[in-house]
Simulated scan of single mutants.
Amino acid sequence: MAKDINDPQSVTSFINKLDPPFAQLVETIRQLILSTSPDIAEQIKWNSPSFFYSGDMKPFAPKEYKRDIIVLNTRKNVALLIFPTGAIINDTTGILEGNYTDGRRMVTFKTMDEVKTKADDLQKVIRQWLALVDK
């Protein structure tokens, strides 16, 4: 299977089109995600900034989304982080929301204070996700 392609410029262009205060919130979340591990790369996928595991993995079916960590949806000044396979994470922080049958879990950010408050927990669940990668 072909690897996803790291494309930070497309993510920067996407963020630069947002209203400045919201763009700053999204950029802060972006840097928080990227700083969690050097194995995280980014691109635009599903019309949103998306973060994925960039290392080698065992083969898998494309619809399993095993490489995709987070899709950052931006709606009405709300940053919604969707973990397509978030149900695999044993979230002891309580940060992951929802109980969707397809395995998605989410984290919502509306303010910079929320980002600061949830930063450690977000990085913890990302590291837990990375530890589960089938390498």
Rank of each mutant, 00 (worst) to 15 (best):
P49Y: 01
A2G: 04
N73F: 02
R105T: 10
I95V: 15
R104N: 12
T108W: 03
K110V: 14
Q9M: 11
L122D: 06
N73S: 10
V107S: 02
K110C: 12
M112E: 13
E27H: 12
I5M: 07
T117F: 11
D134K: 14
V107H: 07
F83V: 02
D91T: 05
P21V: 13
V133K: 14
L81W: 05
T12H: 13
A119Y: 08
S48C: 03
T108C: 07
E42F: 10
S35V: 09
V107Y: 01
S48P: 04
F52W: 01
K66Y: 02
N77I: 01
N90W: 01
I40K: 10
L32D: 06
N16A: 13
P49E: 06
L130Y: 05
R75T: 08
I89R: 02
F52E: 04
I40Q: 11
Y53D: 02
T36E: 12
I89V: 15
I69C: 02
E64C: 03
V133P: 02
K135G: 05
S50I: 03
V125M: 06
S50T: 15
V107N: 04
Y53P: 00
G86V: 07
A87W: 00
G94N: 13
D39S: 15
P59S: 13
T117K: 15
R127F: 01
A23W: 04
S37I: 14
K124R: 13
R30Q: 01
A2V: 01
I89D: 08
L80Q: 04
V115G: 11
N99S: 14
V125H: 03
F109H: 06
A41P: 00
V115A: 04
Y65I: 02
K63M: 12
Y100C: 07
I70G: 02
V115I: 13
F22E: 03
T85M: 14
A79W: 07
A131R: 06
I40R: 06
K118N: 11
G55L: 05
N90D: 14
Y100E: 15
M112A: 14
N6Y: 03
S10M: 08
S35N: 15
I70L: 15
P20M: 14
K45L: 09
